[in-house]
């Protein structure tokens, strides 16, 4: 499969507000939310990105789309470095790169009819005139299961449930027939009973559009269900990357092992090695020296505390950043 998206050494740092004293001394601190991650996504592939809250998943997704300006690295989308595009070029390429946000209550303007919200991107990009855009929006509403679509077209977001709003957000992203979509915890804020049907919807669009997807989630079970390959993030870094099944059923990195242990629905095999981490996630302003997990990892040795491990291919297509792997 040809690569749709390649991310190389992507970094996004946020400046931290400091006290007067530090700012007088000229000290600057940064949250290294994403600190040099690399991965690629094939055409039609769903690539999972998992990790605990605050590890930088959302920032990674926003950086790829330049909704936040990355500090460094490259994002090659269909041969073009997105980070080098000018304002107008970037605006035009957005037609092909879309995002579905985690919070469907905040991602739709409360004062815009949902039909118009879906039709607007088509008008912006000159794909359709007003009438055609309305037709397409109606078709998309039907497609995502909001029927009778004529009636839904004129509703406002506050007349819909969270699940229905997320369907609108999906319809809005998909109306443009994008090649690539970031789905940021697209089902985590939705009622459990609706999750499966929304995942199914995403799966359908992937099939019909040969869509590539960066599927961000903290739920390993969901990743296992939908993602072809998955990367595990910890404190702004990718610690393990490989085929989803293999990665979750036979994790190599201690962090992945601990993550899988903590997800009861996955742990079916009793013989699996149990890993418990000590303490809490350190903050991303001052990550530990060497391996970022070294202060919590039960297997940590001297080298772990001094030298940062590189992501190495330990089996074919399975990458791990651990000195002990």
């Amino acid at each position: 499969m040809p690569e749709m998206l390649e991310v190389r050494n992507l970094k996004t740092y946020f400046p931290v507000r400091v006290g007067i004293l530090d700012s007088l001394r000229g000290k600057k601190y940064f949250v290294k939310a994403v600190d040099g991650i690399s991965f690629s996504i094939d055409r039609g592939e769903i690539f999972g990105l998992i990790g605990e809250s605050g590890c930088g998943k959302t920032t990674a997704g926003r950086s790829v789309l330049r909704l936040v300006e990355p500090t460094g690295g490259e994002v090659i989308f269909d041969g073009v470095d997105v980070l080098k595009l000018g304002k107008e070029e970037l605006r035009r390429i957005r037609r092909r790169m879309q995002i579905i946000f985690q919070d469907p209550y905040a991602s739709l303007s409360p004062r815009m009819k949902i039909g118009e919200a879906i039709a607007h991107p088509l008008i912006i990009h000159g794909i359709a005139d007003r009438r055609e855009a309305r037709e397409i929006a109606l078709r998309m509403l039907k497609r995502v299961g909001l029927t009778p679509e004529e009636e839904y077209y004129d509703r406002y977001p506050n007349q819909l449930s969270g699940g229905q709003r997320q369907r609108v957000a999906i319809a809005r992203a998909m109306a443009l027939k994008p090649d690539f979509v970031v789905a940021d915890e697209a089902v985590s804020m939705i009622d459990v009973s609706m999750r499966a049907s929304i995942l199914e919807l995403l799966e359908e669009f992937r099939r019909d559009y040969r869509l590539s997807m960066l599927f961000i989630t903290h739920d390993i079970a969901v990743a296992r269900l939908i993602a072809d390959r998955t990367a595990v993030m910890y404190l702004g870094k990718i610690v393990e990357l490989g085929k989803t099944r293999r990665l979750i059923d036979n994790p190599i990195h201690p962090y992945t092992k601990a993550l899988v242990n903590a997800a009861p629905s996955i742990t079916r095999r009793e013989r699996r090695e149990k890993v418990k981490l000590r303490g809490e996630v350190p903050n991303a302003v001052n990550p530990p020296k060497g391996c970022r997990l070294s202060n919590r990892c039960p297997f940590a040795t001297d080298i772990c505390r001094t030298k940062e491990p590189e992501l190495r291919e330990v089996e074919s297509g399975h990458f791990v950043a651990c000195h002990l792997a």
Binding site: R95, I99, P121, L176
Partner: peptide, 23 residues
Amino acid sequence: LFVEAAKAIGARDREIMLKYILP
């Protein structure tokens, strides 16, 4: 977030101000 969403669909600044913020 809905302003970020407008940016993500490729809306121009003018459109963001008039269609998403002004209402």
